[in-house]
Design a protein around this nucleic acid. Sequence first.
DNA 1: CCATTCAGGACTGATAAGGTCCTCTATACC
DNA 2: GGTATAGAGGACCTTATCAGTCCTGAATGG
Lengths: 162, 162
Amino acid sequence: MLRLSKLTDYAVVVLVRLGQPDAAGDACRDVQTSPCIAAATGIPEPTVAKVLKTLASGGLVGSQRGARGGYRLLRPLDAIPIADVIAAIDGPIALTACVEGSGNGCSTESLCPVRGRWDPVNAAIQDALGAITLADMQEAAIPRAFRIPALPPSGPALRAAE
Amino acid sequence: MLRLSKLTDYAVVVLVRLGQPDAAGDACRDVQTSPCIAAATGIPEPTVAKVLKTLASGGLVGSQRGARGGYRLLRPLDAIPIADVIAAIDGPIALTACVEGSGNGCSTESLCPVRGRWDPVNAAIQDALGAITLADMQEAAIPRAFRIPALPPSGPALRAAE
DNA sequence: CCATTCAGGACTGATAAGGTCCTCTATACC
DNA sequence: GGTATAGAGGACCTTATCAGTCCTGAATGG
């Protein structure tokens, strides 16, 4: 499946949200709080807090403690490649245990006919993810308002009705 | 981490092995059996069987039942991109639930500012993985013999003594 | 007819992710 | 100075998914 974790998905949403201070409303000014972002994105507040803390550790967002504190972007959206977000949340991109840098070795590596060959694959993916920034993903956010009203109040996971 | 499953890793090893009939020895001729490949790769036999069955369902390998049966490649290694292997084992490449084609919807999608924006990211990765074939990964198999003797007899899961 | 080998599924244990909560510290406002 | 707010940093549990094994059945060759 080659799926990335939900947390990373959330992180992208949260970061894009942080990059739209004007859309935040009066409750959130230059910095935005976890509850504020949670309300805006629909992601549960504890999860938002967890994501933001991780992103702060990764140096993608800055934090301000105390009353009227919150989070803010340290870089503009177009300076944050997806690869950085993934690395901050999920750790360095390593498709398999064999990829160099991921410490743990492979038990069958002495027999493995593809030893070390995942590295270029990994590099190719990293390259692809490094070329796409959050700004690229934000683009789609503009016409978002045109889609929301089209949401029918039916079906649990209905998405195709547009 | 963006990690792919071990089964996919195994699949690559097994497929590369299937692409080297000359290296299989007398016990395995045109077709190779699960136990044979298991012995050659060091992967447990039931797991090899599982991988091969999955690959057969995916149309990457052909199977021959009955005595003296086994598996064989349906395409040469250089005609099998990594993306196909991943798709056969792990299903279609879908980074997030939001990527089209992955059925299940996202609960917060109506608020999500990056709706549908994972698609290009996904496409970029699929593109990168589609450009690398098993033959590319096999290349490294040639100098393998030069690396094996360098293995120190320390580690716990050492199995190279053959 | 029997041995071999794949097909297909069920089952179980281990591992990791997802999510929640608690306590502590820092800051702003009264 | 006191209090409310808000992040820091963990601990924790719950759940889902994967990895691995095994069993039964069907096809094929000798």
